[in-house]
């Protein structure tokens, strides 16, 4: 079947098998930031934005993206670069494999709620697993970023 969508700001038309997953589709189009960590929608590594909302591309058919706008980390480099340095200062990226999904979901959080509390951050990102960092360093990084830009909900 043929689908047409906007991928990272560019119009893409492609012929796909009906059962193609969005995850495999975006990787086939060079978006290697999108990772597969499980087959059960548990890890959050494959998070992309569909029309600005975070979705798990491992459990979304590419066909469902027809007519929609899909954004991966490749398309949000500047917005991400704005805050990921604060994660790097904590060393909380560690192996990095969960980073793109976690960063995408953080972007979605900050667009929806520019000044979240620590609990709101934990809740929003609860579906993004990380086995390396113990999560605390990721939270410190986001908190430091929010504090330097004048967030009100610091601890």
């Amino acid at each position: 079947m043929e689908i047409k969508l906007i991928l990272n700001g560019k119009a893409v038309t492609d012929h796909i098998e009906a059962d193609t997953l969005l995850l495999d589709f975006v990787r086939a189009h060079g978006c290697y930031s999108v990772k597969r960590g499980c087959e059960t929608s548990n890890c959050g590594l494959c998070t992309v934005l569909m029309d600005g909302k975070p979705v798990l591309s491992c459990s979304t058919l590419a066909a469902r993206a027809d007519g929609h706008e899909i954004t991966t980390l490749e398309g949000l480099q500047e917005e991400a670069a704005d805050f990921v340095g604060f994660i790097a200062d904590q060393g909380a990226e560690q192996c990095g494999f969960c980073n793109p999904g976690f960063v995408m979901n953080t972007i979605a959080l900050l667009r929806e709620n520019p000044d979240p509390t620590d609990d709101e951050i934990r809740q929003f990102l609860a579906g993004n697993l990380c086995r390396c960092s113990g999560y605390e360093g990721q939270l410190r990084g986001i908190r430091n970023y929010l504090d330097q830009r004048g967030g009100r909900h610091g601890i």
Binding site: Y32, S33, Q77, G85, D89, G91, G96, F97, N99
Partner: peptide, 21 residues
């Protein structure tokens, strides 16, 4: 000293650095 990891920004920005990539 708490130096940033040399690969930190590559990883955080999702660059293709793993086997499958």
């Amino acid at each position: 000293q708490s130096v940033r990891k040399k690969d930190a920004m590559q990883l955080l920005l999702g660059k293709p650095v793993y086997v499958e990539d």
